[in-house]
């Protein structure tokens, strides 16, 4: 069962023309183009939300598709009581919890404590840079470091960096306290910086 609405943080949440919420209402009224616009806007961040948290590409794509399927199915009962992005990522978060965390630890990564950093972590040997593809090296390095984050920090980091979500929004999606979310975001950024510094001590970001 997909929650079609969540408790609004902002009582005066009125959909504006062209906003995600308005597009969703238009789709509810039968306008498929509205959904296409909505999809184009959110497909990349949502896709990476799954792909970067899961090592299994197929599973990530399945969950990505399931998320949009639930949005489509719930469109009939959709009501604007919160931001669309909050609703969308809440569905995604719940799917991730249901399909992955209930079965096995996310990413098969030994979880770090929330206060733990990746000082002692080394980058993968395969990630060692080649001189001619420096940009690719940096990208791989970044990916590798993100992948090494603890699951909860990774989710908070991705929501923040991809969608620019505030700690309050992320805490709403992940159903944790605001302080815990702030800590997760802070430690995630610090860990990534340190991870990259460990791989390339001679270069700075």
């Amino acid at each position: 069962m997909v929650p079609t609405s969540i408790h609004p943080k902002d009582e005066s949440l009125i959909p504006q023309v062209g906003s995600d919420e308005q597009l969703m209402l238009d789709y509810q009224a039968g306008d498929v183009r509205a959904f296409e616009a909505l999809y184009l806007k959110h497909k990349g961040p949502l896709y990476r939300y799954f792909v970067r948290q899961l090592h299994d590409q197929q599973l990530a794509e399945d969950l990505y598709q399931d998320t949009w399927g639930k949005v489509i199915n719930a469109a009939k009962q959709y009501q604007v009581t919160a931001k669309f992005t909050t609703w969308l990522y809440k569905i995604a978060h719940n799917l991730l919890i249901d399909h992955v965390r209930a079965v096995k630890p996310l990413d098969k990564v030994t979880p770090l404590g929330e206060d733990e950093t990746m000082d002692n972590l080394q980058a993968d040997d395969q990630a060692s840079p080649e001189p001619q593809v420096e940009q690719q090296q940096q990208a791989d390095m970044m990916k590798g470091c993100i992948a090494k984050l603890p699951a909860v920090q990774k989710e908070a980091f991705l929501l923040n960096i991809e969608m620019g979500m505030t700690a309050a929004m992320i805490s709403d999606i992940a159903n944790v306290t605001l302080e815990a979310t702030k800590s997760r975001i802070r430690y995630a950024y610090q860990s990534i910086k340190q991870c990259i510094a460990n791989q390339r001590p001679e270069t700075t970001l």
């Binding site: 497909k43 990349g44 896709y47 990476r48 792909v51 970067r52 794509e61 990505y64 940009q135 940096q138 990208a139 970044m142 990916k143 960096i161 970001l205």
Partner: peptide
């Protein structure tokens, strides 16, 4: 740095 890298997109 994150947004400089090529970002994955669904097929």
């Amino acid at each position: 740095a994150y947004h400089q890298q090529p970002l994955e997109q669904p097929s």
